[in-house]
């Protein structure tokens, strides 16, 4: 996997709706420090904010009014911060339902893979691969990355997007979101 480092160039390409990946890979500065509360709150809001920029296939919903389900699998780092963030929010006409799971299960639309001893992150990712689930990872201990991988850059929460994995999961990620990503893995 090769990611570009120059954010500005990626954004320009994104405005042009072109996803061109330049092969300049830089190792992530991964700090497994205790996550600050503000950062956690931002990440909590990000979870549902991705929804408008991603298209799920119709089969992902049982009915047109089915709920939009956000799952947290593994050790939940958010606590009630996530509940507060999601509270009252909707994705289109769909109400957002929050599920906390120990193991990955079908029915999730956005899946935050926190991971646990029982099921590490990469297993969670693998278990939903190919299904219409937007997987989100955040500095997984095993280095596994979902379709969206949250990173912190210059004290700001940013994200990487694996568009190829998204396509494989029948998800369409908006170019607007891609243009904002610090790194994009193109579809092909």
């Amino acid at each position: 996997m090769h990611f570009i480092r120059s954010t500005i160039r990626v954004r320009e390409v994104g405005r042009a709706a072109l996803a061109i990946v330049l092969s300049l890979a830089v190792p992530l500065d991964v700090a497994q420090a205790e996550t600050a509360p503000l950062e956690l709150a931002v990440k909590a809001t990000y979870l549902y904010k991705f929804a408008p920029f991603v298209e799920w296939p119709p089969i992902a919903f049982a009915t047109p009014s089915s709920s939009f389900i956000v799952c947290v699998v593994g050790d939940d780092p958010f606590g009630d911060v996530l509940d507060r963030a999601v509270s009252g929010q909707r994705v289109g006409d769909r109400p957002i339902v929050l599920r906390r799971l120990a193991r990955a299960a079908p029915g999730c639309h956005i899946l935050y893979a926190a991971g646990s001893a029982a099921q590490p992150v990469h297993e969670i990712i693998d278990s939903v691969r190919g299904t219409p689930v937007l997987t989100v990872t955040d500095r997984a201990p095993d280095g596994a990355k979902g379709i969206v991988n949250l990173v912190v850059q210059e004290n700001k929460v940013r994200f990487e997007i694996d568009d190829r994995a998204a396509t494989a999961s029948a998800l369409v990620v908006s170019s607007k979101l891609l243009s904002l990503a610090v790194r994009v893995r193109p579809r092909s």
Binding site: R11, R15, K49, P52, F53, K156, S174, K176, L180
Partner: peptide
Amino acid sequence: STVAAALVFGDHEA
């Protein structure tokens, strides 16, 4: 339209 994502994700620079 273009500024939507930047606004949503608080990217002032973008």
